[in-house]
Design a protein around this nucleic acid. Structure first.
Length: 709
DNA sequence: AGCACGCCGACT
DNA sequence: GTCGGCGTGCTC
């Protein structure tokens, strides 16, 4: 092995001969590695199989590179490297080619590439960040979503921070003692689930958490039990606030040093430092937000996901994997326990139970009654009878409950987002009002202004409802700030706190206060809220979305779960029709029943998640070409194509020529249960074919699109 | 995707 | 006679 691997004369001559030989087209699948330039190669395993970091489907394969002797020690599987890629052969020389990042996935003695190998340009770091387990997971996620491996790896491996890498990680602590079951005893099968974890088994449960403040401790106890059994544990939660609560609970249970928190607010370097501690096996428990779903926990024994209905669990970057699916893949691949918890249950959660893969983990009825607040509804009929409501935007029940509760503690007011810009609907039939010209939503731009289109800005003159021919408009939602002002005026001696998009409060004290919050930004009250007003009733339910009911129930229940139990006077007033299914589910506090009924309905209508779906988006021509190319599984339904409305985009089209773009259309593909993988594979194959063929316009493929009307 | 090779029209 | 159109094909 030569110290300086490059340019040794005798070897250089040999290489030249090999280059000439290669021009004669060598045969046989196991060619000995040959390389350009006069590099001395690593002696033992001179070939590195490299995943080149280019998110291109038709380059979704490994490339072999020669390992210069000088890089032999560092170029281990999993390390980051830089390689020259895309060079051309001119005469006997390689020219051009740009440097790309990549990962060594394997060291080999030989290659099946029929040609001379380019050498690795550089080993960026000797840290093996993409180990076999993580690589395998990324591969499965890429396949599941018809995406490119490199795209998934980019989501899974954080960017390198050299300083964090230099420092050693702490020595691993011995496993902590198993915690007592605590409030898990409130659930029928709670202790049994923990016992199975303690034995090192892999129980799987869909956990309908009781309302109230205990879920972070319960989640932490499950993790600590897995740790005590000598296994690792991973919990993914929707946001930093939830992560902080589980972190605090875990620290209280087993102290510091056993776990890390992986969230964005730690900053990139600290986050990478913690990630390395996990990757190096120093720490075996992780609490984090979405990206933590890939955390390479050693000997994983439990994966948990909290509130899988929260939209932040859907990764926005290609191929847009959902944390629930990634953790399901991990539970299967790594043979771990699985805990899908929430105040409500999604249809996907209900399906895991329905299929028998997971068991329901729920509390008996009397525990629910002891934990849930009293729910009161105010429907349209009540509001019509209520003169105070018409004058003052809030029904008198809400005023009474608020006044009453403010004597005992804080009151939470859940208001819809969007400040002062209420959208408009037909006063008679409640159909959302749309612009006659562009079908955009009609809005009231300011308090005194006249209604206008939110997309094209045209004023709505002579509006009439296409549904019922009504001519009067009403505000669909009351702006958050306005409600806050009104309530503040009504209770002048009570402090008003607001928590929303820009300023999210984590907690509020036990003293009387009005806490105005948008959905998802509700602070936790130290001793629970005395009452909650849920004011965004039909704004939530009116959305043209398959999940509108589930999502409304989820947001209401999350807010209601912060209120004291009914026997301590906890009351929730929800402004919504009491006959609607999600409203009834809230009143009876039966989110699991709601999810089961939604699931049954989806099954009947052959909607996801019972059937699997993919959407293909592009110009009409490109879609037709894609349809000709793809070899779909036999039982595929092809729905559409339908034109896709282009909201937002139309208003701020900055790209030149954006407006002469063809209208985009969407094709939906639906397969029966069990054919999702075949559909993904077929779409990926067609994408590769089309991209390789050249000249074809790209289309966007998305598995399990979340936004189908 | 980039990037270069390759085979047909209007220019010094 | 050449410069250059972007069709086609490859990237270890």
């Amino acid at each position: 092995m030569s110290e300086n691997g490059f340019g040794e004369p005798s070897k250089g001559a040999e290489q030249l001969a090999l280059i000439k030989e290669s021009a004669r087209k060598s045969k046989g699948p196991r060619a000995k590695p040959r390389t350009w330039r006069g590099a001395a190669l690593a002696e033992g395993l001179p070939v590195a199989r490299v995943l080149v970091d280019k998110g291109l489907l038709h380059l979704d394969q490994y490339f072999d590179y020669a390992v210069p002797a000088a890089m032999d020690a560092d170029a281990r599987p999993g390390v980051r490297v830089r390689v020259r890629f895309g060079a051309r052969v001119v005469g006997g020389r390689r020219e051009g080619g740009t440097l790309h990042d990549g990962f060594v996935v394997e060291r080999r003695a030989d290659t099946d590439f029929h040609g001379p190998l380019a050498p690795l340009a550089q080993v960026l770091s000797a840290e093996p960040v993409l180990g076999p387990g993580l690589l395998n997971l990324c591969r499965q996620v890429a396949d599941r979503y018809a995406g490119a491996l490199a795209d998934v790896v980019q989501l899974a491996v954080p960017p390198r921070m050299a300083r964090a890498e230099r420092d050693p990680s702490p020595d691993p602590l011995p496993a902590p003692a198993a915690p007592p079951p605590g409030t898990w005893t409130r659930y029928a099968t709670g202790p049994a689930f923990l016992q199975a974890l303690a034995r090192g088994d892999a129980p799987r449960a869909v956990w309908l958490a009781l309302p109230g403040p205990h879920w972070p401790q319960e989640l932490a106890a499950a993790m600590a039990t897995a740790l005590a059994a000598g296994r690792g544990a991973l919990a993914v939660v929707p946001d930093g606030r939830a992560a902080a609560r589980v972190d605090a609970a875990l620290t209280a249970l087993i102290g510091e040093g056993h776990h890390v928190v992986l969230t964005a607010d730690a900053g990139p370097e600290e986050r990478y430092r913690r990630w390395l501690a996990v990757s190096r096996g120093s720490v075996r428990a992780v609490v984090g937000t979405r990206a933590a779903m890939f955390a390479p926990v050693a000997d994983l024994g439990l994966v948990a996901l909290w509130d899988d209905g929260d939209s932040s669990h859907a990764e926005p970057h290609a191929p847009q994997p959902h944390a629930r699916d990634v953790l399901l893949l991990r539970a299967r691949q790594e043979q771990t326990a699985f805990l899908l918890g929430g105040i409500t249950t999604t249809v996907e959660g209900a399906q895991l139970v329905d299929s028998g893969w997971a068991l329901p983990l729920a509390a008996p009825r009397e525990e629910v009654r002891a934990a849930a607040p009293l729910i009161r509804t105010v429907g349209d009929a009540d509001q019509a009878r209520d003169e105070a409501a018409r004058a003052a935007r809030l029904p008198s029940v809400a005023w009474q409950v608020t006044r009453d509760a403010l004597a005992r503690g804080p009151v939470l007011v859940q208001v819809p987002r969007r400040g002062y810009v209420p959208r408009l609907a037909c006063d008679h039939c409640r159909e959302p009002a749309r612009c006659a010209t562009c079908a955009g939503p009609l809005e009231l731009p300011d308090q005194q202004g006249s209604p206008a289109c939110g997309w094209c800005g045209r004023p709505a003159v002579d509006w009439s409802c296409p549904n019922c021919a009504g001519t009067r408009l009403r505000a669909r939602v009351v702006g958050a700030r306005r409600t806050a002002e009104e309530l503040g005026r009504a209770f002048p001696r009570v402090p008003v706190r607001t928590s929303g998009r820009d300023t999210v409060l984590a907690t509020v004290g036990a003293a009387p206060a009005l806490v105005i919050a948008t959905p998802g930004a509700e602070p936790v009250a130290d001793e629970g809220y005395a009452a909650a007003l849920l004011l965004d009733g039909w704004a939530l339910l009116n959305r043209p979305d398959l999940r509108a009911g589930e999502e409304a129930l989820r947001r209401w229940a999350l807010a209601a779960a912060l209120v004291r139990p009914a026997d301590q006077g906890g009351t929730v007033v929800v402004l919504a029709e009491p006959t609607l299914r999600p409203v009834q589910a809230l009143v009876r506090w039966d989110p699991a029943g709601h999810a089961r009924r939604e699931l049954a309905e989806r099954a009947e209508l052959r909607f996801p998640p019972v059937s699997r779906m993919a959407s293909v988006t592009g110009s009409p021509g490109a879609l037709a070409d894609m349809a000709d190319t793809v070899r779909l599984p036999p039982a595929t339904d092809v729905l559409g194509p339908v034109p896709l409305p282009q909201p937002a985009r139309a208003r701020r089209s900055t790209a030149p020529g954006a407006d002469r773009e063809e209208p985009r259309q969407r094709l939906l593909l639906r397969v029966p249960p069990g054919n999702g993988a075949a559909l993904a594979a077929a779409l990926k194959e067609a994408q590769v074919l089309r991209a390789t063929r050249g000249g074809a316009e790209p289309v966007l493929v998305r598995m399990d699109p979340p936004d189908i009307g």
